[in-house]
């Protein structure tokens, strides 16, 4: 992997960190407000399901996670294990794919449930 790519990954991690900081704040505030109206599955689906805005927001959230966490994992593995760079990049890439798939499945799942 070239130095330019390595530096871009680092930059992507910083930028996704900023996105995450905002997203986590909104997410937590949202939860605290939403809990006031009850915490049943039906309640949650009623609020979140079918909302394009919320689906878009959580889509960005998942994307930022899928960028941020695997790059950090890549650094930790490189510093703390004897794994070869190919393996490290492979594991980090797979981790990104898992986060992206699971996260998007959840987001689309809620969206698909409609407004309850």
């Amino acid at each position: 992997m070239s130095e330019v790519t390595q530096t871009r990954l680092w930059l992507a991690q910083r930028i996704s960190a900023m996105v995450l900081a905002v997203a986590v704040a909104i997410h937590l505030t949202g939860i605290i407000i939403a809990i006031q109206g009850g915490l049943s599955a039906a309640e949650i689906i009623g609020r979140v399901g079918g909302s394009f805005t919320l689906a878009a927001f959580y889509g960005v959230f998942v994307l930022a996670c899928a960028v941020h966490a695997p790059i950090g994992l890549r650094t930790v593995l490189a510093e703390m294990t004897d794994l070869k760079p190919v393996s490290v990049n492979g594991i980090a890439g797979a981790f990104a794919a898992v986060i992206l798939l699971m996260g998007m499945q959840a987001v689309l799942g809620f969206y698909g449930l409609g407004g309850g």
Partner: peptide
């Protein structure tokens, strides 16, 4: 700057 960028450079 390119010499000090990358995984072995300042970003580490």
């Amino acid at each position: 700057l390119s010499l000090v960028a990358g995984d072995d450079g300042c970003i580490a």
